[in-house]
Simulated assay, not measured.
Amino acid sequence: MGSAWVVAAAVLFGIGSVAQAAALAVPGTPWSAQLRHPAFVAGTVAEGLGALAHAMALQTVSMAAAQCAVSGSLAVTALAARWWFGTRLGGGGVLAIAALSGSLVVLATVSGQSGTATDTAALEVGLIVTAGVVGLVGLAGAVARRAWLVAVCSGLGFAACSTAVKLVDLTHPLSALTSVPAIAAALTGALGCLWWTVALRTGAVTTVTAVVVVSEVVPPSLLGPLLGDEVPTAFYAVAPVVLAVAALACVTLAYRSAEPAPAVENPLPERIPA
């Protein structure tokens, strides 16, 4: 079931990203109207369901394996963007998707088993500090219209959210809702969603997704052993190399997908007047 949750999250994240990007790409439309567009609402629902599937994966598989859902969503995004926006992938893009997929298989192989994470004061302080940094730096990036910086903050927000979810003790559901990890998960998750939406307004969907994926996947995956995951010795040697390959594949895919062809003036069908 853990693998099923990972796959479901990857598909939902990927499709939701493209649907949201399509609504935000409509020219001459106010932001408030874009956020109410059916495509954006549908994409948000898909992202929400993906987050639930990801949370279930975090409870059943190791952190590194659960983060495969995030990386895998980039391939779904790239393919969906190719169909929706006409974005070129090219041979390099196809190879990047193959490298990303292969690295995820290797990472899942050496990621070990999910363990019981121990909540500590240091981790809680780290999550709160991360939320503050993500909020302030993301705001600065949004004001300066730096899509890549906002995307990094979005990814780090989601990374902190995944880490916080891993720390939530579900054996006591009522007390878990008011725990510091649960509050930190809600705060960092909200910041991740906010900066994700802002980044999509100023950058290409595949490029933004690639930056978010790298920022979201790498830190929690490396923190897995500190969060109670039982990993084999090979993890410490293989995981950094595999994550570096995945990051390079994401960057390559973003570069290959940066220029749409042909340009789509309106990616959404116009409504037929009554």
Rank of each mutant, 00 (worst) to 15 (best):
P220L: 01
T252N: 04
L156H: 09
V242L: 13
C161T: 10
G72Y: 01
L89V: 14
V110K: 00
P260Q: 07
V168N: 02
Q113W: 05
A249K: 08
V211Y: 00
A142R: 12
V18A: 15
T171P: 10
I183Y: 02
L177K: 05
R82E: 08
A147L: 07
S103R: 09
L52Q: 01
G155S: 09
A185S: 03
R146P: 03
V213A: 05
A234C: 07
T252I: 07
V133H: 11
A99Q: 00
V7S: 10
V105L: 07
A184D: 03
L222K: 12
T202V: 06
A140H: 11
G90Y: 15
W83I: 02
A25N: 13
G155E: 08
F158W: 10
A254N: 00
W83N: 00
R36S: 12
P30W: 06
S103H: 08
Q67M: 15
G224S: 12
G138V: 10
I97R: 14
P269N: 02
S101K: 10
S32H: 01
S114Y: 07
A159T: 13
R146Q: 14
R145N: 01
A10V: 02
A186D: 10
A9F: 07
V212W: 08
Q34P: 00
G50H: 04
I183S: 03
F235E: 01
G43N: 04
C161Y: 09
F85M: 10
A96E: 08
P219E: 15
A75C: 04
G126S: 03
H37C: 05
T233H: 08
L223Q: 08
A204E: 06
A53Y: 04
A25R: 12
R146F: 03
S71E: 05
Q34K: 15
T209E: 03
T60L: 08
V238Y: 06
A151W: 03
A246C: 13
L253I: 01
A33F: 04
V45S: 01
Q59M: 06
A42S: 03
A159N: 06
S32Y: 01
Y255C: 05
S111P: 09
I128R: 15
V241L: 11
V242T: 15
G126Q: 15
L227V: 00
L174G: 11
C68I: 06
S179G: 05
I128P: 08
V26K: 15
A21I: 01
G14Y: 03
L253W: 07
P27V: 06
E124F: 14
L24S: 11
C153M: 14
A261E: 03
A159H: 13
M56I: 04
